[in-house]
Write a protein that binds this DNA or RNA. Structure first.
Lengths: 244, 244
DNA sequence: CGTGCGCTTGATCGGGTTCAAAACGTGTGG
DNA sequence: CCACACGTTTTGAACCCGATCAAGCGCACG
């Protein structure tokens, strides 16, 4: 995928950057054509809402580019992010009328949308789609469970380190670069969004990032560009053991 | 092993207490027969492990009776429950070799198990099963997301109230009893298990339960038998608004 | 050059943890 | 039936991590 192209919208599915990992991953040519008939692209600027909680669902779809966040808000305003959607992740739930939570574009986002009703009929008659959706949902459930551990038991420092390694890993999984080498990535989240993800306040996020900088574990430029000289050192701070 | 009852094991699927809600819910007679060929029952005593994290998965299955807990443990011993499985809930993940987390019987448990390999082939050729599994997984993902909100943003008191209403609701969903009437239920969890569920210490759990007793919102007998004179009052303490 | 938003830093506060001990319940054996 | 022991739960006192309240900083943009 080319990061400075004039038009990021893939004109045809076989040029799509998420072709191999999205909900359509297992589809063959004929199935793709069916999907193609009910699909359209939408773009959102950073900060814009994609779906409001309680709204009637009009579409489901895949994040093609950018980052979107699911979040839930309590009456008094406390909010918790409950999903962080990166390219290839799926948005929306077939078999449901209204959206259970807000979806917001955290950075500029391109979505590949499918109109709800036709998608559901396709889902019912195309095992390649429903199987893939099941796989993806199970994966998401697994990561939700890791997230539960993070929220329930990790310290602020461990939470920050975990989030940074997660983003680093997810942005570098395509480029199979050797471990041990310096890794750079852009934070697609504000401090506040990070706080919502981690169940912290933005002040605590800021303080912990400062602490990691002070100790030389990470370096940050312009608040968003993170470089990690030795990912191993950062990983040690996550509290996780050597698996995953 | 049957403790009192003559035999809780359903001899045939149509007498099964979870027939309408388990993974087999959509199956017709022929499909049930197929499932029946690869199924067997297992029982576990309270406190016993059902699956160890890292073990090779031999079966998947449904909780028929009792309560089981998924949990993850960090190197230093901190543990977080990441799933609370009540009757009809599904255990195990098709398409995976080894178990990612511990599964423990929290009370005496009866499981309806399917051998892994044959279940997977059945899954592939029986849309009624895979569709149901997708539904159930999406539901579980939804409840995991509510759980994230609980762990990330709720106070200790709200957490306790949320757990109690959850259990009350889940144990009374069959019996469509009128709201507003006194509700009694048995806690299937120790204080420690509740703490692991809620991301608290057992002392805090105990203190918050005592506070709710002191205020007359709940009454507790023999540490396990809870009665709620007015479920509405308890619900007010959860921090949730009037939906769900 | 000011204005605003996102981020950092400081000082104080408090909810939940930690450590410790007592109370309760349950089961066991004399 | 009581005495004892063990596991669970309750309660108490001190502490600490992260929240809260409050400035101040830096950069983008009009």
């Amino acid at each position: 995928m080319d990061n400075m192209t004039p038009d990021i919208r893939p004109r045809a599915c076989d040029m799509c950057p998420i072709r191999e990992r999205a909900v359509c991953a297992h589809c063959n040519g004929a199935e793709l054509e069916e999907l193609d008939k009910v699909k359209y692209y939408r773009t959102y600027e950073a900060g814009q809402p994609i779906i409001f909680a309680g709204d009637k669902l009009e579409f489901v779809g895949s994040v093609v580019k950018g980052v979107a966040a699911l979040s839930q808000t309590m009456e008094d305003g406390r909010t918790q992010m409950t999903g962080l959607l990166l390219p290839s992740d799926f948005v929306g739930r077939p078999g449901r009328e209204t959206a259970p939570y807000d979806v917001t574009a955290t950075s500029d986002v391109v979505m590949c949308c499918f109109r709800l009703a036709p998608f559901e009929t396709l889902l019912a008659k195309t095992p390649h789609i429903s199987q893939r959706l099941l796989e993806m949902t199970l994966d998401e459930l697994d990561s939700a469970r890791e997230w539960l551990l993070l929220l329930g038991r990790k310290t602020a420092r461990e939470k920050i380190a975990s989030l940074l390694t997660f983003i680093a890993r997810r942005q570098h999984e395509k480029t199979a670069d050797p471990l041990g080498i310096e890794i750079n990535f852009e934070l697609p989240l504000t401090r506040e969004a990070m706080a919502d993800y981690l169940g912290l306040t933005l002040e605590t996020v800021s303080r912990q990032i400062s602490a990691l900088k002070r100790e030389g574990i990470i370096a940050v430029e312009k608040n968003r560009n993170v470089s990690v000289p030795n990912i191993e050192l950062l990983y040690r701070e996550t509290g996780d053991d050597y698996a995953t």
